[in-house]
Simulated assay, not measured.
Amino acid sequence: MYGGSKEKALFLIRIQEKREKMCLFGKLYGLNSPKTIQCSQELDTLLNEYYQLFQNTKNKYSVPTHRITVTNSYVRQYSLPYAK
Rank of each mutant, 00 (worst) to 15 (best):
Q38R: 15
T71H: 11
E17M: 11
S62G: 03
E42R: 14
T65C: 08
L24H: 10
Y74I: 11
Y29P: 00
A9R: 15
L43P: 10
I13G: 03
N59F: 08
A83H: 12
P34Y: 05
K21I: 10
N72G: 03
Y51N: 03
I15K: 01
K18R: 15
E42L: 13
T36S: 04
K60I: 14
C39S: 14
N56V: 08
F54S: 04
E20C: 08
Y51R: 10
G4C: 10
K84P: 15
M1F: 05
Y29V: 00
N56P: 02
Y74L: 14
I68K: 05
E7S: 13
L10A: 13
E7N: 09
K60Q: 05
L24F: 13
K35F: 09
T36G: 01
T65Q: 05
Y50A: 05
N56A: 06
L31A: 02
Q77F: 08
C39M: 10
I68V: 08
L53M: 11
Y51A: 02
S5Y: 09
P81S: 09
N56H: 01
Y2D: 03
N59P: 04
C39H: 04
K6N: 12
K58H: 09
Q38E: 14
S79C: 11
N59C: 12
E17S: 11
C39G: 02
M1C: 02
C23N: 08
S79G: 10
S62Y: 09
T65V: 14
F11C: 06
E49T: 13
D44I: 08
T65W: 01
G30K: 02
R76E: 06
R19N: 10
T69L: 10
Y74H: 06
K60H: 03
C23I: 15
T45G: 08
G4I: 06
Q16N: 15
P34R: 01
L46S: 07
K21D: 06
P64K: 04
S40Q: 15
T36N: 02
K27P: 00
E42N: 09
C23S: 10
C23K: 11
L31H: 01
L47D: 04
N48M: 13
A9S: 15
K35L: 12
N32P: 00
K6P: 03
F11I: 00
G3N: 04
Q52S: 07
C39I: 03
V75D: 01
D44G: 13
N56S: 08
I68A: 06
T45N: 12
R67N: 02
V63K: 07
R14F: 07
K18T: 11
V63M: 07
F25E: 05
F11E: 09
K18D: 06
T36Y: 05
T71Y: 14
Q16M: 13
L53V: 04
Q41T: 11
M1G: 04
K8H: 07
F25Y: 14
S73T: 10
Q16G: 09
N32I: 01
D44Q: 14
K18E: 15
L80S: 11
V75A: 02
K6M: 13
L12P: 00
K35G: 00
K27A: 02
Y50M: 07
R19I: 05
Q52W: 03
S40D: 09
L31R: 02
Y78C: 09
L24P: 00
P34G: 01
R76C: 01
T36F: 05
N32Q: 07
G3K: 03
T57L: 09
P34W: 06
